[in-house]
């Protein structure tokens, strides 16, 4: 487990540090992440497995779409997490820019690839759903195009944070891109309401009852919740690794200086 890193006390935060900076101590973060990680992965895998089996083998087929509707159980959670992940990326970037939190830069760098992965799932499964139902793998309507833009924002962030010799400048550029891209999130959400699109409007909204049979809604909620836990677990694992890798670089640099 992560116990091995408990012993070091790197860059101890000033006494009485409060608020977010309580988690600025990398050792404390690693201990916390090490405790949360097995639970998040376990719960995520369990919920996702139940939801997927339920959706594939138990839930009823749709009267129009037949069994193709089962693609929903992977497509919709991926779509939700693509947007939620970007929200997390933007929040980490804001914390990094404004409060200079030492973990926030690393968090942004580690969230972006996971978010890009879930956006890719959303785009690919959506395409595989669109062909048999709509009659096209891809159309340039506002919903599909804005999600493709989201994918490129993630890729741009990944490229930008690695494009500079000094990581600090890469973090800064990436954070600005992430915040600028937030404009795309309401466009994705409301594209189906603001403009005529081929993509249908949301079935599950905060304001009204879901327009979905309950026997289909339940497995969807399971896969969505499971996928969220898996997303969190992936980010925590990557962030823990990144914190340790930074510690390794610091130790190597100190050693090189000492000799």
């Amino acid at each position: 487990m992560l116990g091995v890193v408990d012993v070091f006390s790197p860059t101890a935060p000033p006494r009485g540090a409060r608020g977010l900076h309580r988690f600025a101590n990398p050792g404390r973060f690693l201990r916390l992440a090490g405790r949360v990680l097995p639970w998040a992965s376990g719960i995520g895998l369990l919920l996702a497995a139940i939801g997927l089996a339920w959706g594939l083998f138990v839930a009823p087929a749709d009267w129009q779409q037949g069994d193709a509707v089962r693609i929903m159980y992977v497509h919709v959670p991926a779509a939700w997490l693509a947007s939620a992940g970007y929200m997390a990326l933007a929040s980490a970037s804001a914390v990094a820019l404004v409060w200079r939190h030492p973990l926030a830069d690393l968090a942004a760098v580690e969230i972006a690839p996971v978010g890009a992965g879930f956006t890719a799932i959303c785009l690919i499964t959506g395409s595989l759903w669109g062909k048999p139902m709509w009659g096209a793998f891809w159309v340039w309507d506002a919903r599909l195009t804005s999600v493709l833009v989201l994918f490129f924002l993630y890729l741009g962030h990944i490229a930008l944070t690695r494009a500079f010799d000094s990581p600090e400048r890469g973090y800064r550029a990436g954070a600005i891109l992430a915040l600028v891209g937030v404009v795309n999130l309401p466009i994705i959400k409301f594209s189906v309401d603001w403009w005529n699109t081929l993509h249908q409007p949301a079935s599950i909204t905060l304001t009204g009852a879901p327009t979905m049979y309950l026997g289909m809604l339940w497995p969807l909620l399971f896969t969505a919740l499971g996928a969220s836990f898996i997303f969190v677990a992936l980010v925590l694992a990557r962030l823990s690794a990144a914190v340790m890798e930074r510690r390794i670089r610091a130790l190597l640099a100190a050693r090189a200086e000492g000799t």
Binding site: S41, G66, H75, G117, F118, T125, L128, W129, L234
Partner: peptide
Amino acid sequence: THLAYILPAYAVALLIPALFA
């Protein structure tokens, strides 16, 4: 019905998180 679309969709949805993990 539509197994030719359902199977690849589920495969992609499982494969990508597995690679990340």
